[in-house]
Design a protein around this nucleic acid. Structure first.
Lengths: 334, 334
DNA sequence: CCCCGGTATGACAACGGTGTCTTATTGGAC
DNA sequence: GTCCAATAAGACACCGTTGTCATACCGGGG
């Protein structure tokens, strides 16, 4: 029924163990033998049983990607990045959604590891900051890499981008266009990134010698709705902002929507900037100036680190990119 | 190091085999023994090795979800549905992205099955219609269920929704609001659903006694850009449509965007309808009237069928839902 | 009282590979 | 020519479960 190493070894005229050696690219196999085995493998279209390899060997050729993020775009990008690196390595990816607030989180992760013997784990934000998850992984002494962790940076290897710098860059972009009154919409309070983006905004203002005005800053929750509300509050001010920087694209879309509704012309009456460069950024009019998070690359780099034989703790920062589109423009001299 | 059945059996004071029986919920275990084993399992926090179960037994407690769809929303919803059903069953889900145009598609799928011994496969559209994939699965005699297949309906079990009826319903909704000149933007030619939605549009017109005008129908490609272009073409007609029905939300957003740019008031000057009910539908102004595809439910139902012990071929149709929002309105008497 | 089917449990091989150890064969340094 | 390290390949146990078969007990019908 199933094709096994035994069949391959028979065809190639060598021992089972030698076939195993070829499969695992071990040293001490003659070129001639290697070729014979490879031909037999191809002829039989043989794929080794992962279950058997896992049971007998010390590797499982599987890693787990654990996530709890409700943005399909983000998850999709992460999966793609991890998957791409896995494919190069001939390793399977187990995608594992979890609920970081679940009281059984540690148990679920522990069970996953015991059942599947995964060789390593990728943690995607915000699971990166769930203490229960981190403790469980530590206890099991399994290697893991975190994508965009918010806390405990020293703990493990991680890859991330600099949210502070990115928000600073965007704010500076607006300042360079002549804006002085720049509104800001803070992200969801649960997200580490929200604080960092807020801080980057302040830092850029400081450097430009512009006073930070709390009245120009509103709390949002990362959704469209909250962007609209923030825009309404900001644009009803007596001394209105000439630009609004929202901490993510959904909220920026909300700002845009409200601005249109009250008849403002974006970008000439009001510049609007977002963050994340989701597809949405190009599905609104005008297309949003925003910050591209290299999510796919982060995921790829994280997986790469997981496969790296050197177990040193490494922190890798990837570069963000300012995507300047139609929603921001130089301040009109009025 | 690792906790095994042996440890459990020692603690519980029974044989290895008996523990196995409890784990697999087999008959012929006394209540007393079962309880003892369950206590030992809990005490040791034992999770059985999937690799060993797979190797020794006839099941692998894993299924594969194979997809090649570039819409993150769709994939995410499918994964969620499949995952939810798997979790109930205590089965792992292997998410496997593929490229349906790859010449090695069959080999990849074959390799996946050989390596992982998955118990079954869920095929998500459009992999559902890749002959190479179907042949390979047939050859391996593995059970699989298809989500929204476009062809070969008789071949295997499947779950789907009625795209024709949904497009018919939406068109009828517009007709009921008094519209007679209804533009239509066809979806990507590679997608089976495109034809069906187009056909549903015609059917509704027919039934209402409205002539089908090819001039009111444009080819699109499911993306924002093509929606804008189609809108431009349609709205430059001497005898303009009063409503435009786009085959998906992205294109509808494009229509909306173009309409705004030329100063039309949606929905009073023009009604716009989409299809799919992606989150985008509520991130544009006004929010889109669209059709909700029950993607998550489809995926859940498909997985349920996969687990169903009865191997009969079943076709299950799930109900769509018309989401009437702000982008459509009764025709203004002018 | 004996036999039998239903219930409850254990012994043991097998699943398909890898880890470890052993053995044989080279080719170069002395 | 001898010795040794490097190279090449095989024998065999073992990984942690499940499938199969054997065994023992129990209660009821003849």
């Amino acid at each position: 029924m199933r094709v096994t190493i035994k069949d391959v070894s028979r065809i190639a005229g060598v021992s089972i163990k030698t076939v195993s050696r070829v499969l695992n690219k071990e040293k001490y196999v003659s070129d001639d033998t290697r070729r014979k085995v490879e031909e037999a493998v191809a002829a039989l279209n043989f794929s080794p049983s992962l279950a058997a390899r896992t049971l007998a060997g010390s590797r499982s050729f599987q890693i787990a990607l654990i996530y709890d993020n409700h943005s399909p775009y983000y998850i999709h990008a992460v999966q793609e990045g991890v998957w791409n690196r896995c494919r190069e390595e001939g390793v399977r990816m187990l995608a594992q959604p979890v609920d970081i607030d679940s009281p059984t989180l540690a148990q679920e992760i522990g069970g996953l590891i015991d059942e599947t013997h995964v060789d390593g784990v990728i943690l995607s934000s915000p699971v990166t900051d769930a203490p229960a998850a981190l403790e469980e992984l530590e206890r099991r002494r399994i290697r893991f890499v975190r994508i965009s962790p918010g806390t405990n940076h020293a703990l493990t290897s991680s890859v991330f981008m600099d949210d502070v710098q990115a928000a600073d860059d965007m704010t500076t972009h607006l300042i360079n266009q002549g804006h002085r009154r720049i509104g800001f919409v803070i992200g969801h309070p649960n997200h580490m990134a929200s604080d960092q983006r807020h801080f980057g905004y302040r830092r850029a203002l400081d450097r430009a010698g512009i006073a930070y005005e709390p009245g120009l800053v509103r709390q949002g929750t990362f959704d469209f709705e909250s962007g609209m509300e923030a825009a309404e509050a900001l644009l009803k001010l007596a001394h209105k902002p000439t630009a609004i920087f929202a901490s993510n694209d959904d909220m920026a879309a909300g700002v845009l929507s409200y601005a249109h509704r009250i008849g403002l012309d974006v970008p000439h009456d009001l510049s609007v900037a977002g963050f994340d460069d989701t597809p949405l950024a190009q599905l609104v009019w005008p297309p949003l100036t925003t910050v591209r998070q290299p999510v796919r690359d982060l995921a790829y780099a994280a997986t790469d680190q997981l496969f790296c034989p050197d177990p040193a703790i490494v922190h890798q920062r990837l570069q963000h990119e300012l995507m300047v589109r139609g929603s921001t423009a130089p301040l009109r001299k009025s």
